[in-house]
Design a protein around this nucleic acid. Structure first.
Lengths: 220, 220
DNA sequence: CGCGGAGTTGATGATCTTCAAACATGGTGG
DNA sequence: CCACCATGTTTGAAGATCATCAACTCCGCG
């Protein structure tokens, strides 16, 4: 049996602003694992689309508590701002290649009243929808439900691969779900012990969802 | 000394879509305290602007856990959807008067490429920004920080009244902050005991922020 | 191989929730 | 106009979940 994994074939680029993107693309850029792409409160200059790799965007509290807002995977666009400052910090989770385009050229396209405006509304709306369902998760779900929801979200975004390869570590997952890394680890162990989930071979980053139906039932 | 309170003078209507709204307004409508304005998964027909009163929008989990997404106050618009279903339920917290306009007429305005598109992007972006900072609150702040943040948010939205009159009860606040009503009550008691906050007269819904600076320091 | 980051697991503890009871508030009708 | 009642709020005690602290193991990489 052929095993699909989620790294090998580069996924088709499908961001809502793809048309704008490809027309206005400036250049490709590479970020090393862990490096910052832009910082919170910086002035936005570019909009980014991921060619390969993965990115986390997050906010920090003064004492260092971190809330990861979103993970951005291959094909995703991020970094767009209407306002004059970024609302997040963005970092490459692994070595990441992106396409850059100038923010101003996107804004211009919107001003010129083309299809750009509608695409942009859709883009922002999708971010909003994600944030809304994430608020429900953060405000009201248990740790087991959160971790399950995370797995199902990744599964869907990676198009249900046989083996899911997670680019992020347990701390990233924890900071996305409003938990600690230990709690994430324990939840994964429970799901594994219940047979809903299998770690692939030796790696704790490669996992296989054995029973998506049962997982969906856990995620309230 | 003259005491400003936040109910008396009807605030100027200032939603981002106000221009569209006033042009296309259909009619005024009244909702009784506690009544549903629209339900999650319903097809959106109208966009609403609050003339008087207050509205909560929320999502429910199957077992009844509730996450209130936002409170909408006088002048605020809500209920706009790009998609074909509402993503929330909306209920009147107190007796509420709204202006209705047809959703389709807004969409039309956007399609026609007027100023509508830009206003709409701004509107959706502001909702997104609110959701993003609320994710940080829900994922990473303590109960005392959450309640403090709530008070400061309301204070600002009501334009720093001397006496803040909250339309919502403790359970609503709790479901907004991802807490229980008891925890909210305890946090308010702490803030009162520390002298940062005063209950006005007998009512637990009328309160005065005595030391906004100290409150801002608590809200990390 | 061995080193260091990452992950798991266990023990303990803090915060928040749950359960419970008492009290306050504001609207209603006698 | 005031007593009454439903609803809302506070406070306390006990319990659950998740966080913290700690030790150990695993894995990937040089």
């Amino acid at each position: 049996m052929l095993v699909r994994i989620n790294t090998a074939p580069r996924m088709p680029i499908d961001g809502q602003l793809a048309a704008l993107a490809s027309e206005r693309m400036l250049s490709e850029f590479r970020y090393r694992r862990g490096s910052e792409i832009f910082g919170e409160r910086e002035e936005p200059e570019y909009v980014y689309q991921i060619v390969s790799g993965a990115v986390r965007t997050y906010k920090l509290l003064p004492d260092g508590r971190r809330q990861i807002n979103a993970f951005h995977l291959v094909g995703d666009m991020f970094g767009f701002e209407n306002e004059t400052t970024h609302r997040f910090t963005a970092e490459a989770i692994v070595e990441t290649h992106v396409h850059l385009m100038r923010r101003t050229s996107i804004l211009e396209a919107v001003r010129n009243g083309g299809a750009g405006a509608k695409d942009l509304i859709k883009f922002v709306t999708q971010n909003l929808q994600h944030a809304e369902s994430h608020m429900l998760l953060l405000g009201r779900k248990t740790s087991l439900e959160r971790v399950t929801a995370f797995l199902l979200e990744m599964d869907e975004r990676l198009q249900h691969p046989d083996v899911m390869i997670l680019p992020m570590n347990r701390r990233d997952i924890a900071d996305y779900l409003g938990l600690t890394l230990e709690t994430v680890s324990r939840a994964l162990s429970i799901l594994r012990d219940e047979g809903l989930l299998r770690f692939d071979g030796n790696s704790q980053r490669r996992l296989e969802l054995v029973d998506r139906g049962a997982l969906a039932k856990i995620d309230a």
